[in-house]
Computed example of a mutant assay.
Amino acid sequence: MQRTPAGLVIAVTGAARGIGREIARELAAAGARVAVGDRDLEAAVDTARQLPGDVAAFAVDVTDTASFTAFLEAVEERWAPIDVLVNNAGVMWVGPFDEEPDSAARRQVDVNLLGVIRGVRLAAPAMRARGRGQIVTVASGAAKLAPAGEATYAATKHAVYGYLNAVRTELHGSGVQLSVVLPGVVETELAAGTATGPVRRLAPAEVAQAVLAVIRRPRFEITLPRRLNFGARMAALLPDPARFLLLRAVVPNQVLADKNARRTYENRAVSGTEGASEQ
Rank of each mutant, 00 (worst) to 15 (best):
A151Q: 06
A139N: 15
A70C: 01
A124P: 13
F97M: 14
A126W: 03
V186P: 07
A249Q: 09
T152I: 15
S277M: 03
E266L: 08
V45F: 00
D61L: 04
V255E: 13
I222E: 05
L247Y: 00
V160P: 13
A148D: 13
E76K: 13
A15W: 02
A236V: 06
V167C: 02
Y265F: 14
S174K: 05
R219K: 11
E42S: 15
W93I: 14
A124E: 07
G131W: 02
F58I: 07
R107S: 10
R78S: 04
A30M: 07
Q177N: 13
E42I: 06
V91Q: 08
E73C: 01
A213Y: 01
I117S: 13
A154F: 00
L72M: 06
I23S: 07
A124Y: 01
A236D: 15
A213Q: 11
V111Q: 09
A66N: 10
E189T: 15
V251C: 06
G133N: 11
V250N: 04
G131L: 01
A257E: 06
P198T: 09
V185L: 13
H172L: 07
L202H: 11
V207W: 00
Q279V: 10
P204D: 04
M234V: 15
L178K: 08
A203G: 04
P225R: 08
A80S: 15
V214H: 05
L237I: 08
Q279I: 04
V55H: 08
T4G: 11
D102P: 00
V12H: 04
L171Y: 04
K144C: 01
D240K: 12
P241S: 06
A166V: 11
R3H: 01
A124K: 12
R121V: 08
P147H: 03
L246A: 10
A249W: 00
N165D: 15
A59W: 02
